[in-house]
Amino acid sequence: MSALIDPRLALAMVAALALLVALFCWPRRGLWARWQRARRFSERVYREDALKHIHKAEAKGRRPTLESIAGAVGVGLDEAARLVGALSADGLLEDRAGTPALTLQGHEVAVHIIRAHRLWERYLAEETGYDEEEWHGQAERREHDLTPAELEALAARLGHPTHDPHGDPIPRADGHLLPHGGQLLSTLPLDQPARIVHLEDEPEAIYAQLVAEGLYPGQMVRVAAVGPERVHFWTNGDEHVLAPILAGNIFVRPLPTEEVEHTAAGRPLTALKLGESGRVVALAAGLRGQERRRLLDLGLLPGTVVTAELRSPGGDPTAYRIRGATIALRAEQARLIRVTNDERRVTS
């Protein structure tokens, strides 16, 4: 005679089996379905990152290799070789004298990803409070999610910008690019006024050092000396000394005389001594997004008179009188506000 199974145990076993089926096999929501989707998404990200890397290499006249693809995507050489084979089989890559090259279809996919990345960086800079060092990483994660229709809506919201916050050209939907037209900072003739038009944001460690130096597109610079170990230049009244590997990520465009005269108007707000007043003439391009809107809301518009009233014991921040209110500004903010002298002074 076979042993009878406890009804409660049988019920528990059926419930457990049903739960396992639901978790692993349920269409669209089960763990198996989710794992499959995650796997497909990862594969698509790898493919798109590989195409983006090859596009950038071709644009710079460089030869993409399995090693460079593996490094850009973050996989081993065997996986990079598999990716190149799969992309070739799908008509996105072709072999040109032993070098993987984009086909027309592959070029379109790469342009879409680059456009998504740079538009999203522009969005983060103009519409959010993310720190500058976070823009690239955030855009890297978001670029694979945006559809062409969403990109068009984002571009329209931002006013169809031609360049991202670093000065990289944003491709149009048809793939057309408007180059920044800059040259390496180290190739600029000594004491030739120029404007920063592009900061290379890769590798991220080098870009973070440029941000820490307070550099941004739109600044006027003058090179004082170029040597094998150091590049000396001036911007915003400050001297900067960078190693060539850092300066090699800065691109500039020489300025005509009339533009130099217009740009040179005023001095940084930080130059005001206590009790001294200045009249706002401009906010630098380095002030973006919520921080720029906050300063505009405080009344820091061209023509506004600002007076330096009080400086903290440590020297930073400084309290300024602006339209009848006292506002504390950090030196890194005040340095991006240009003022001219105002005859009025505070009397005690």
Rank of each mutant, 00 (worst) to 15 (best):
G299M: 00
L210G: 00
E143H: 03
W234K: 04
A156M: 11
A89T: 10
S186D: 09
G314R: 11
E48V: 11
G159L: 04
E79M: 10
V84I: 04
Q209K: 14
L19W: 11
A50N: 11
L19T: 15
R345F: 03
Q138R: 15
E309A: 13
W135D: 00
I245D: 08
A18T: 11
V221Q: 06
A325W: 01
A328V: 05
L199K: 05
G289T: 09
R115L: 09
A86T: 14
R47Q: 15
P189K: 09
L184C: 01
G248E: 11
P256Q: 02
Q209I: 03
V339F: 09
P171S: 12
D174P: 10
D90G: 10
Y216E: 12
A149P: 00
M1E: 11
K56N: 11
W234T: 14
Y130D: 07
L119A: 10
Q333P: 01
A33P: 04
R288N: 02
V260I: 13
E134R: 15
E332Q: 15
A308T: 00
A86S: 15
A153W: 05
G137E: 11
E309D: 09
E204F: 03
A125R: 01
E126C: 09
A325H: 14
A59C: 13
Q192F: 02
D164F: 06
V75F: 05
R47S: 13
V109Y: 04
L188R: 06
D168P: 02
L146A: 09
D164N: 10
L274R: 13
R141Y: 12
L274S: 04
G227A: 03
P27L: 01
V75H: 00
P7N: 05
L215V: 07
T347H: 10
D6L: 06
D174L: 03
S186V: 11
A10T: 12
V223D: 12
L287W: 13
L154P: 06
W32Q: 05
V226P: 05
D201F: 06
L83S: 13
A225H: 11
R330E: 04
F251W: 12
R118S: 14
A208G: 08
A57C: 07
R37L: 09
L20F: 06
